[in-house]
């Protein structure tokens, strides 16, 4: 693998004295699929929230694409090219699928408020360009048929795909997926896995994902990081992690 796109050094996070993350360090190589696994409450989602600035870590450093992220905020992270989906869908539920996807393009917007108000300058060409990008992504994720639907009325699995489309449409360098397959059946998981692989290979997007289904994780990822009680207990290829006794203990428990 090539050099690290994201490197996490010694990151700690606590909520009112309760430690959520303790001295986490690892690298995500450019172009890989990295899976974060661990039992419930291990701090996986918190770590994603630290990476894109929803939470502010107490200590530690983040480096993204060679630059230190000193004070990450959600919008700054988005501008730098970090896309994100949430565990419980965070869509704009009264907007259509198309509008949701278009909203994901704001970080690329250059036309000003006044240009839009008077329909002059870059307003029209940008709208056209955005529409093309959105349609491409909608086609890529095979949700054309639902383009004009209000997302609040789509079934859960499709909503997850719309959220992926919204994160993907601005072509982020790094995509953080929080349980993209939660609540799905086997077929749907296969389908999403295929999309994730396509995104990774065709669009060269580096992916960090959280997933509970170990079978899926082992098949999908190049690199697995295991968290337990806010600490990193395993880090390596799927094979290495599977053979790691600490990981086995965390998942299966110890013999008493």
């Amino acid at each position: 693998m090539s050099e690290a796109l994201l490197s996490i050094r010694d990151v700690s996070l606590s909520f009112k004295g309760i430690k959520a993350l303790t001295a986490i360090s690892f690298d995500v190589a450019d172009g890989e699929i990295c899976a974060l696994i661990g039992p419930n409450g291990a701090g996986k989602s918190s770590l994603l929230n630290v990476i894109n600035g929803v939470y502010r870590s107490d200590r530690g450093e983040l480096t993204f694409a060679g630059k230190a992220l000193r004070r990450p905020r959600p919008r700054l992270a988005a501008r730098l090219g970090i896309g994100r989906t949430f565990q419980n869908n965070a869509l704009f539920k009264r907007l259509t699928v198309l509008d949701n996807v278009l909203a994901g393009l704001t970080r690329k917007a250059r036309a000003s408020l006044l240009e839009h108000t008077f329909r002059v300058g870059r307003s029209a060409s940008e709208s056209r360009h955005f529409r093309e990008l959105a349609e491409d992504t909608i086609a890529f994720l095979e949700i054309e048929a639902y383009r004009d639907w209000i997302v609040g009325q789509l079934p859960y699995g499709l909503q997850k795909r719309v959220e992926l489309a919204r994160a993907l449409v601005s072509r982020p360098r790094l995509l953080l997926l929080d349980e993209p397959m939660a609540g799905m059946n086997h077929d749907e998981k296969q389908e999403i896995s295929r999309f994730i692989l396509d995104v990774n290979r065709d669009l060269k997007t580096t992916i960090v994902l959280i997933e509970h289904d170990i079978g899926v994780v082992m098949g999908l990822s190049d690199h697995v990081v295991v968290l337990d009680y806010g600490r990193k207990i395993g880090d390596g290829s799927p094979q290495e992690v599977r053979d790691n006794p600490d990981v086995v203990t965390a998942y299966l428990g110890t013999v008493h």
Partner: peptide, 9 residues
């Protein structure tokens, strides 16, 4: 929150 994460100021 989702708007901020999507890059909307």
């Amino acid at each position: 929150t989702a708007a901020a994460v999507a890059g909307i100021p």
